[in-house]
Design a protein around this nucleic acid. Structure first.
Lengths: 320, 320
DNA sequence: GTGAAAGCGCTAACAG
DNA sequence: CTGTTAGCGCTTTCAC
């Protein structure tokens, strides 16, 4: 019986016959409880992510991963965490540790592009499933991806910006960057944003400008920047920085569109200073990524290799 | 061992000792595979819903239920469907059939209120878990609920209506009712809708009016109704009826806010005639309801008794 | 290449 | 009230 399913024999014709006969005609279904009980195998996954102590976004991702870990623990899944400091050197060191250990599956985020590609190529030699979250590496292929579609989310942000009908609107795009250079999706978001207005040429009453400031200090913002501005688009999770500035300086009536349900963003969403947040569901991303490995390895199910998170529009009234 | 967990003995103190000693100190976890293999029990769920042949909303619910059925089949779950025609007599007949059979769990939607209460009281005597979907019955208690929060969704619709800044806005609420009277949530939605504007008194530039028409024929709409109107709120899934009328009569520039991702609604969403659809995730509702029974009965996990679906804002750009 | 048997961890039934 | 045992359906191993 087992050798029919796992076809230990090589007689292809006979196998096909038996598979047809038994599985299809008799409607045989493998009993998953018995199978896993007998199989009695443990699955070890590696999770390679940035240390999340002061990175709320990654903390939320981690929450989803831990939820999945807890859920799948009784099914023989265990997870080892490799958390690196937010710099390439630390990443490479941790990645090396992962390569030296022996895992059945890998989950990681390619924050530092070049280093990540090298690591990916190395790990692929092991021929174990890999899931990437948050952002994707196109080449080399051969891994699954769970995450956002950055371009589409920017396109959506364009629509959200467009809701103010008829009036003349000046839109300011505020790019708030970090000291350490990393794979960043905000440029794709801005691409998508402009693309929306290009595809909707009837929206003639919008004018755009951009500024770039550094995350590390707030006083790079000044009132003059917001002169005549009616909407602000912040293409990463730091919309709260703009919100805080506008609130402190009592500048009202400017619509803010941003990303991610960070605590500070939510605070200003609830206050009505931030109008829209596009949620990429980081918790679900983390969960789905582990779930992908679980389904593939433990349940041996067929799984999609790319899973784009749905784009969730969050306003004050549907946040919970 | 099994009698420690299932405490066959009555010596409470000793039990507590052993539970503490073994479960907590030794970190014992019941092997779910072995447990279910040995238990070898089949679970039969009854699903009592309206025949969905021409009710797209219920068809989508059903899709979620069938997805769950498929997923949980290897774990011993089977589902019997009792689908009634959309009238109370048919409901009562089907409900009787459910009562006469022997099920481990029940999933149903209380479409016809009085009949549903009577059925609920009757079924509760069996002391088996019950999940209600779509709408809830407050009394009697003793069942789980998976579904929408109708008031909150109307409140959110208010926010979506409010996005047009500064201009004078006339809002028309179009109530499209059915011939057969059934439990309906649209009144709660309208409540929530008005409530939003009451709680945001700074939005002074909105005026409201209401009309009621019957689903059965379209020609109850006429152009005069939309004179001077800038937004239309349809508090059920039939926004496409208004959209179709406006399109056919080439009335442009009216914002439409509606509910549910029915095919026709999506068609007009994509065309840009409908602006917002609030999605109650019917597929996920159906899935979650079965999942609730599964977790409770098969996995014997603790489960939440009330699960409000998140309110999803769908525009053209984030529909997939 | 194929058949037989042990045993995965648990539950339920039965004997003491 | 407690100890023992068969067996759930499958995988793996070992003998043929």
């Amino acid at each position: 019986m087992d050798r029919i399913i796992h076809n230990r024999g090589q007689v292809a014709q006979e196998n096909i016959d038996k598979v047809n006969a038994i599985i299809e005609e008799y409607g045989y279904k493998r009993n998953i409880f018995a199978s896993n009980l007998a199989f009695n195998k443990k699955f070890k996954f590696a999770v390679l992510l940035p240390q999340f102590s002061d990175l709320e976004y990654w903390k939320i991702q981690m929450r989803g991963i831990e939820k999945a870990e807890k859920e799948f623990k009784p099914y023989g899944v265990s997870i080892s965490y490799y958390l690196y400091d937010f710099d390439p050197v630390s990443f490479v060191r941790m990645a090396q540790n992962v390569l030296e250990a022996d895992f059945d599956g890998l989950l990681f985020a390619p924050i530092f592009y070049d280093e990540s590609v090298r690591f990916l190529e190395e790990f692929q030699k092991k021929d174990k499933p890999i899931v990437m979250i948050d952002s994707d590496i196109v080449e080399p292929k051969g891994h699954a991806y769970v995450g956002q579609n950055a371009f589409k989310s920017g396109f959506l942000a364009g629509r959200l910006t467009s809701f103010a009908v008829k009036e003349q609107r000046k839109v300011l795009i505020v790019k708030i960057t970090r000291d350490i250079e990393a794979t960043s999706v905000y440029l794709q978001r801005i691409d998508g944003f402009y693309s929306f207005f290009r595809q909707n040429p009837q929206l003639t009453h919008f004018k755009f400008s951009e500024i770039t400031i550094n995350d590390s200090s707030l006083n790079q913002l000044d009132k003059a920047m917001f002169e005549g501005i009616s909407s602000v688009f912040v293409p990463n999770s730091r919309a709260y920085i703009v919100a805080q500035f506008l609130e402190e300086n009592q500048i009202n009536g400017i619509r803010i569109i941003g990303y991610d349900l960070l605590e500070k963003n939510i605070e200003y969403l609830k206050k009505g200073v931030i109008d829209f947040l596009i949620n990429q569901k980081p918790e679900e991303q983390g969960y789905s990524a582990v779930n992908h490995l679980y389904k593939k390895l433990v349940l041996q199910e067929a799984v999609e290799e790319t899973y784009y998170m749905p784009l969730e529009i969050i306003v004050k009234e549907n946040f919970d």
